[in-house]
């Protein structure tokens, strides 16, 4: 696998996966062009990326660089106009039909006619998941700290609380792969750090693969095994930075000198694309 712009490698971040296992996400020369009135938008150009099972990947880049587009392509919500991709070794539509991933959208997208609990129950109902669905949904709500709000309707919750419900909903059916589009963008710093830790714990305990969009460099460094830096017009992958910080991560991680080096490296890559 070749990157458009390989970044300096600093060493393995996580215990590396068994060498022969196929990547859970494999993207080759991926391209997405949207027709717009009087022309076209190149939302994504020549993207190459390979993600191993169990990785935590952050996508970072300026607004409009194609982060959401990349997630939607992987989720089979958009069709590529060039190149190809495999999810869990299968075409994206097959992976979607096998319910390989949970998707947290950039907006909470809760159904206003369902209570908080019923929103979390939705995927379990649709997929006819066996077992005690109610207990499962409650467990997920507890995870995001909203167990006291299960009877409320979404409009009675703040934006950040709604986003946490949508995270609980995506986790409810226990998919091996998680796509998260700026899930913590609307949260205050303290809640955000708390949920960062919760997400990391969940990731380590369940071995899920997470692909996470963020605008925050420290958040990307704190969470990820690798950070994919993207630039706009046309949207492309500028470089990939390995985050070789030890696990489990904690508040001390933020004090690690390597933390600052990595943050600077990402900032430089972002600037380079901006020029």
């Amino acid at each position: 696998m070749t990157y458009t712009n390989p970044s300096p490698q600093t060493g393995p971040a996580q215990p590396s996966p068994p060498p022969n296992e196929p990547p859970i996400v494999s993207i080759r020369d991926l391209q997405k062009i949207f027709p717009v009135p009087g022309g076209e938008t190149v939302a994504l150009k020549d993207a190459n990326l390979s993600i191993q099972r169990g990785e935590f990947i952050s996508l970072i880049g300026p607004s409009g660089c194609g982060k959401t587009t990349l997630l939607r392509l992987m989720a089979d919500l958009e069709q590529p106009t060039g190149g190809g991709l495999l999810i869990a070794g299968r075409p994206a539509d097959e992976a979607r039909r096998e319910r390989q991933y949970g998707y947290v959208f950039q907006a909470p997208a809760l159904m206003e006619w369902r209570t908080v609990l019923k929103n979390v129950l939705l995927p379990l109902e649709v997929m006819n998941v066996p077992g005690d669905r109610l207990a499962r949904a409650r467990e997920m709500l507890k995870l995001v700290g909203l167990e006291k709000f299960e009877r409320n309707y979404p409009w009675q919750l703040s934006g950040g609380m709604q986003q946490r419900v949508s995270i609980a909903r995506a986790l409810a059916f226990d998919p091996p792969l998680l796509f998260m589009d700026e899930p913590f963008g609307a949260l205050d710093e303290i809640t955000r750090e708390h949920l960062n830790l919760e997400l990391l714990r969940l990731w380590r305990e369940t071995g899920k693969t997470v692909i996470f969009v963020t605008h925050s460099i420290p958040e990307a460094v704190f969470l990820s095994t690798r950070v994919v830096v993207m630039t706009a017009r046309p949207g492309r992958i500028e470089g990939v930075v390995d985050i070789n910080l030890p696990h489990p991560r904690s508040d001390d991680t933020r004090e690690d000198p390597r933390f600052f080096t990595l943050a600077t490296e990402i900032r430089e890559l972002l600037k380079k694309g901006h020029a």
Binding site: A75, D76, R96, R97, R99, A109, M111, P123
Partner: peptide, 9 residues
């Protein structure tokens, strides 16, 4: 919401 239902197949 339609996208969401689609992700649930």
């Amino acid at each position: 919401h339609l996208d969401l239902m689609r992700t649930y197949h």
